[in-house]
Design a protein around this nucleic acid. Structure first.
Length: 237
DNA sequence: CCAGACGTTGTT
DNA sequence: GTCTGG
DNA sequence: CCAGACGTTGTT
DNA sequence: GTCTGG
């Protein structure tokens, strides 16, 4: 799944992937957490937008459920009332250049692992966004990131992973007039399926208070396929 | 008809 | 808002 | 996602 | 254990 990610790429590198936009002034982020502002591209807008991560549907009474709506399962997103309409109205790309997944170790600790595309080039998570009016009438825009079952190369680490839209399908994902076949993989970044480079980065990232380049400093570099299983006691063989 | 839910992940 | 359960 | 809190009453 | 905050 996806519960933390990074966006520290330069504007120039965002241009290279998403096309030229007027990127807002922004802080480099190494530990973006749910409920925080994230940078997205909407299909109907020529400007990137900041929205809160954690979907608040337009009909919600309050924002209390938002922290549990940071992800939407791609397998069911077309059926769920909270997401279904957004799939045909409000798709977006959530801009990132890496993400963290936690692997449960035998001693019960959770070790963060950092995943990127080769070269650390930026990418867009498949996202949905919505608009909510708070009791005073203020508009709050929020978003969620789609997830999918982890492909085999990732399975030993985690059973879910975020959906990264293939660069060639950015236009299609953002254009809600075009149908997306959720059962097809032709719009998904192929390395999601075949393997991303990743690294051990240490436990500092676990605390959201830490948000600096040390969070993703590589301790041990890994290649896809080098996934180490950590069976729990009693589950050896 | 009205009332109440509407979501994901992980773990067992 | 829209669907489900009673 | 992980980390950290998790409660009431009355009195100042 | 479960909820909230970031």
């Amino acid at each position: 799944m996806c519960g933390r990610f990074t966006l520290a790429a330069a504007d120039h590198d965002l241009d290279g992937v998403f096309g030229h936009y007027s990127w807002p002034e922004r802080r480099l982020r190494y530990n973006i957490a749910p409920t925080q502002q994230v940078l997205i591209l909407k299909g109907n807008s020529s400007e990137p937008a900041w929205v809160r991560w954690g979907l608040v549907p337009r009909w919600a009474r309050d924002t209390s459920g938002a922290a549990r709506m940071i992800n939407a399962r791609s397998e069911t997103v077309l059926e769920k009332p909270a997401f279904r309409d957004l799939m045909s109205r409000s798709r977006c790309l959530v801009i990132a250049d890496g993400f963290y997944e936690w692997q449960l170790l035998p001693d019960g600790k959770k070790e963060p692992l950092y995943f990127q595309l080769p070269g650390g080039v930026p990418f867009g998570f498949a996202g949905l966004w919505d608009t909510w009016h708070d009791p005073t009438g203020q508009i709050v825009e929020t978003c969620t990131i789609l997830t999918r079952a982890a492909p085999p190369w990732l399975g030993a680490i985690h059973n879910r992973c975020p959906v990264i839209v293939d660069r060639s399908a950015h236009k299609r994902w953002l254009d809600t007039a075009q149908k997306i076949d959720m059962a097809s993989a032709d719009w998904i970044e192929p390395l999601t399926e075949f393997g991303l480079p990743y690294a051990r980065v240490g436990f500092r990232v676990n605390s959201v208070a830490n948000d600096d380049s040390a969070c993703r400093e590589v301790h041990t570099k890994k290649e896809p396929g080098m996934v180490e299983n950590h069976p729990r006691q009693g589950e050896l063989f």
